[in-house]
Simulated assay, not measured.
Amino acid sequence: MAATQPSLWDLEKPRKVPVSITVEAKKKKKMVRGKTQMKRIENATSRQVTFSKRRSGLLKKAFELSVLCDAEVALIVFSPKGKLYEFSSSSPSKTIERYETNSKNMGVHKRTVEQNIQHFKEEIATMSRNVDLLENTKRKLLGEGLESCSTDELQQIEDQLEQSLSNIRARKNFIYKERITKLKEEEETLRRQNADLRKRLEVKSLTLSTVQQDIDPQQKIMEVETQLFIGPPERSPH
């Protein structure tokens, strides 16, 4: 039998692609390269290819950083075989010299900071010991924690207490004397004020007596005869 020729209708119909092939192609498109593990590449060829690619990218990034940000950048890379690759936005020697100067200054500053920290630590430790000593002395002066004290220490504490009592009594006597002196001054002020008032009163009494003596006797009689009469009026005789 002769093979049948495809008709025009068959040629115009879309060809069907197997489903398995289509899914496999989509999977390949969606495949993403996994994260590179940070460890030494064992294969020498792969290691060299990776070095070349990463070196080029690193040099490019250094150039972009210097141009875009106006930064001074110096990059030095040695290959596994010892070949030098470098990039510098100005001069490698000047950048290295600047780095060394800055590192030296940072080292001096760091040493200064460390010395200051050590000094502060020592001061804190000394102050802590002094505080503990003062607290211990205070407790002993209050009569606490005397079990571990020797006879000499107890005698020393007693002498300190006696000296403290003597200072307290002296201060109290001084305050009393100041109060007595102030009260005496106030008393003297009141005495002077009282004497002044007494003199003013005597002057006023003398003035009043003199005025009474100068009054006219006739005026006194008139004042005596002029009296107020209360009652019905008297009838006149016919």
Results as ranks from 00 to 15, higher is better:
194 N>E: 04
194 N>F: 01
194 N>T: 07
194 N>H: 00
194 N>L: 04
195 A>S: 11
195 A>C: 01
196 D>G: 03
196 D>Y: 00
196 D>V: 03
197 L>D: 04
197 L>K: 08
197 L>M: 10
198 R>T: 09
198 R>H: 09
198 R>P: 11
199 K>Q: 14
199 K>T: 12
199 K>M: 13
199 K>W: 01
199 K>S: 13
200 R>D: 11
200 R>A: 12
201 L>Q: 12
201 L>Y: 07
202 E>Q: 08
202 E>H: 07
202 E>T: 05
203 V>F: 13
203 V>K: 12
204 K>N: 11
204 K>A: 12
205 S>H: 08
205 S>P: 02
205 S>M: 11
205 S>E: 03
206 L>Q: 10
207 T>K: 10
207 T>W: 02
207 T>H: 05
207 T>M: 05
208 L>N: 06
208 L>C: 04
208 L>G: 02
209 S>K: 02
209 S>L: 05
210 T>V: 13
210 T>E: 06
210 T>G: 09
210 T>C: 07
211 V>P: 02
211 V>Q: 13
212 Q>I: 09
212 Q>M: 12
212 Q>Y: 05
213 Q>T: 06
213 Q>L: 09
213 Q>M: 12
214 D>T: 15
214 D>P: 13
215 I>G: 01
215 I>N: 01
215 I>K: 00
215 I>T: 03
216 D>V: 02
216 D>Y: 10
216 D>W: 02
217 P>K: 03
217 P>M: 00
217 P>W: 00
217 P>G: 00
218 Q>R: 02
218 Q>M: 00
218 Q>E: 15
218 Q>T: 09
218 Q>A: 04
218 Q>V: 10
219 Q>Y: 00
219 Q>R: 00
220 K>Y: 03
220 K>N: 15
220 K>P: 07
221 I>D: 10
221 I>K: 03
222 M>I: 14
222 M>Y: 09
222 M>Q: 08
222 M>K: 15
222 M>C: 07
223 E>F: 03
223 E>T: 03
223 E>C: 04
223 E>L: 09
223 E>R: 08
224 V>K: 03
224 V>P: 01
224 V>G: 09
225 E>V: 10
225 E>Y: 13
226 T>W: 05
226 T>V: 08
226 T>A: 06
227 Q>N: 04
228 L>C: 07
228 L>V: 06
228 L>S: 12
229 F>R: 11
229 F>M: 08
229 F>Q: 05
229 F>E: 02
230 I>W: 01
230 I>R: 09
230 I>D: 12
231 G>W: 01
231 G>R: 06
231 G>E: 07
231 G>H: 09
231 G>Q: 06
231 G>M: 07
232 P>C: 03
232 P>K: 04
232 P>I: 05
233 P>L: 15
234 E>A: 02
234 E>N: 00
234 E>G: 02
234 E>P: 08
234 E>Y: 07
